[in-house]
């Protein structure tokens, strides 16, 4: 499957990645190659093989329902660019 320029721009935008225009072609080629590999694997007959959701053949471990995390707001907010009244401040977003 071949991705074109507009596919790359859309994917980059969805991932909020800035890609220089001159790099777009190379990404298109690289990602298309990856998809070709997937297509090759897709061609293998896997009927009767249960799909895996994770490479480890294990089940999720569960945690008891107990609060264990103390309040570390000061610590966490020391690396935030902007805070006020305990809130993180970000540029205005309106729906």
């Amino acid at each position: 499957m071949a991705l074109d320029r507009s596919d790359i721009e859309k994917i980059a935008h969805l991932a909020r990645l800035a890609i220089a225009p001159e790099q777009t072609e190379r990404y298109a080629a690289d990602l298309s190659n990856i998809l070709d590999l997937v297509a090759q694997m897709d061609a293998v007959d896997t009927s009767g093989v249960e799909p895996m959701a994770h490479p480890l053949h294990m089940a999720q471990r569960l945690r008891p329902d107990q609060p264990t995390e103390p309040n570390q707001r000061e610590h966490f907010q020391s690396i935030a660019p902007l805070t006020d009244s305990g809130l993180y401040l970000v540029p205005k977003v309106i729906e």
Binding site: R63, D65, Q66, P67, T68, E69, N71, Q77, G86, L87
Partner: peptide, 23 residues
């Protein structure tokens, strides 16, 4: 629940902002 779905931070309603938000 008493704690969050994937972390041990408490879920009490009405706490001061960001005092129940862990890493």
């Amino acid at each position: 629940t008493q704690s969050k779905i994937f972390s041990g931070a408490p879920t009490a309603f009405g706490a001061d902002p960001n005092t129940q938000a862990c890493a």
